[in-house]
Amino acid sequence: MWKNSRAGGLPLRPGSTRRNPLMRRSDRIENLLTLAVIVLAFAMLPLAIFAGAKTAASQEVLAEQQTSEFRTVTATTLADSTGVTMSSDVAPSGVDTAPAKWTWGDQTRRADITVDPATPAGTEEQIWVDGEGNLTTQPMSASAARVAGVIAGLFTWFVVMMIAMSGFLITRASLNHARDAQWDRDLRQFLDSTTRH
Rank of each mutant, 00 (worst) to 15 (best):
R25N: 08
D80S: 08
G9T: 02
I163S: 08
V115N: 10
D89G: 13
A51D: 10
R18L: 12
V147W: 02
V115E: 11
N31P: 00
L191M: 05
F42T: 09
P11L: 05
L169Y: 14
A7G: 02
R6A: 05
N176L: 10
A178G: 06
A121L: 05
L45A: 15
L169C: 12
M162E: 09
W183R: 15
T55K: 07
A43L: 15
E132C: 00
V84Y: 06
T77P: 10
A178P: 02
A91T: 05
D130E: 05
S16L: 07
S88V: 00
I170P: 02
A164P: 02
I127K: 04
L35G: 12
A48E: 13
E64C: 01
L62I: 07
L10T: 05
R196T: 10
Q126A: 12
K54Y: 07
W128P: 07
V147K: 09
R188F: 02
T82A: 02
V61T: 05
P14C: 03
G131W: 05
G9E: 13
M162Y: 08
D116G: 11
R71I: 01
A56D: 01
V150A: 15
S16N: 01
S68N: 10
V90W: 02
W128M: 11
A98R: 06
S5V: 03
L12Y: 03
R6D: 08
D89Q: 11
S81V: 12
I29Y: 14
S166P: 02
D27T: 09
R179I: 08
G133C: 05
A75R: 05
H177G: 14
I127Q: 01
A79I: 03
E125W: 07
A53I: 06
A111Q: 12
G167H: 13
A100D: 03
Q65Y: 07
G122M: 08
A111K: 11
G133I: 04
T156D: 11
D80I: 03
A75D: 08
T97H: 05
V150P: 01
T97V: 10
I163A: 10
N134A: 09
A79Y: 03
A7L: 11
W102N: 06
E69L: 10
A91N: 08
T74G: 03
S16D: 14
M165S: 14
A142I: 15
N134L: 07
F190C: 03
T119D: 14
P120V: 14
T85F: 00
Q107T: 09
G153H: 14
W102E: 05
A48T: 08
L45W: 13
R179P: 01
T55A: 11
V95N: 08
A79H: 04
A75E: 10
E124I: 04
A144L: 06
D112K: 04
V147E: 02
S166A: 14
A36N: 11
T74N: 06
A98H: 06
N4C: 03
